[in-house]
């Protein structure tokens, strides 16, 4: 066995060397940093990392911090509406575009272009349009509708929906593109069979076609979920967490505690919570999507 292994490595030595950069990135940049982040979350680190051990003290503090509670609650609301609206809107757009419409490629281009732009840009644009002193509200007042109110970005009750609006604008094209690609892959004979069976078109989509597109649906939901968990840029550009703490999100909480509040222990505790949540939620999805069918058996 030992001799076999040596011979195998010798024979493929160049391939081993070629994979060293990847190994280094995985071991140091991914696993190492992750481990150290988790380790720091059990220390009392403030401005500089410390090597002491304070148990779950940082986690207790974290969940006592109202800003963190707000952040988590906000993320939950944003994630729920964002995923729901993006998915429904993206599917509808794809299905409608699939009805043999004229100027199909124009529609496709229009619905997907926001996805090519940065979250910063998305945040800034919608900040202006929803800004009561400048945007739609101001314009409507100018036109004589003085009772018109659209102040989402400065209204603590509505600011999350402003963010949802901007992110939906940014992301629903992605769902459309993936679902449309899937629809185009559906065997035309399936459609013929449903016409012989006399199944109404909407029923075909709901009962037959969309279930067939499960991989595309999961892929788009995974991509959107990742972008929501990582969500930072759009909030910074649009509201910077305000008004007050009404639109704080976990990613921003961590960044603030790392670089502005010099509270590394608390920040790493928060990032560990995010890490565990993501792994728990994503693990089954990742497993079924990426590892069930492994590459070529060599």
């Amino acid at each position: 066995m030992g001799a076999d292994l040596t011979r195998h490595v010798k024979r493929n030595i160049v391939a081993y060397i070629a994979l060293l950069p990847m190994a280094a990135v995985v071991i140091f940049a991914y696993l190492g940093t992750m481990a150290w982040s988790v380790r720091l979350s059990f220390s009392s680190s403030k401005l500089l990392p410390r090597n002491d051990f304070v148990g779950f003290a940082q986690y207790v503090t974290l969940f006592d911090t109202s800003r963190w509670q707000t952040s988590l609650g906000n993320l939950a609301i944003i994630a729920f509406f964002f995923l729901l609206i993006c998915f429904v809107l993206g599917c509808l757009l794809a299905i409608f575009i699939d009805q043999n419409v004229r100027a199909e490629s124009l529609f496709r281009t229009v619905f997907l272009y926001p996805y090519a732009m940065s979250f910063v840009v998305a945040g800034l644009i919608w900040q202006w349009i929803l800004n009561p002193d400048l945007g739609i509200q101001h314009t409507m007042h100018g036109l004589g509708f003085s009772g018109f109110v659209l102040d989402w970005v400065v209204n603590p009750q509505m600011v999350l929906y402003a963010i949802i609006l901007a992110t939906v604008w940014h992301g629903s094209g992605l769902v459309m593109a993936l679902i449309l690609a899937g629809l185009r892959g559906v065997d035309t004979e399936i459609w013929k069979a449903t016409r012989i069976d006399g199944i109404p078109a909407w029923r075909v989509y709901v009962s037959i076609v969309l279930p067939m597109l499960r991989p595309m649906i999961i892929t788009s939901l995974v991509l959107l979920s990742i972008s929501i968990v990582k969500m930072y840029d759009v909030v910074v550009a649009m509201t910077n967490g305000g008004p007050g703490t009404a639109s704080e999100v976990p990613a921003k909480f961590i960044m603030d505690n790392l670089f502005e509040r010099a509270n590394i222990g608390l920040a790493t505790a928060a990032s560990t919570v995010m890490l565990v949540t993501v792994l728990l939620v994503m693990a089954p999805v990742i497993y079924s999507q990426y590892f069930r069918k492994s590459g070529r058996a060599s």
Partner: peptide
């Protein structure tokens, strides 16, 4: 990964993929 036999390469690749789902905030400070 796809043409050569390197032991452990697939485990490495799996870790790499998993890493892509983790929020950047976990890696940034280290």
């Amino acid at each position: 990964l796809s043409f050569w036999k390197v032991r452990g390469a697939n485990v490495l690749f799996a870790c790499l993929l998993l890493g892509s789902f983790v929020p950047y905030q976990v890696f940034i400070y280290p």
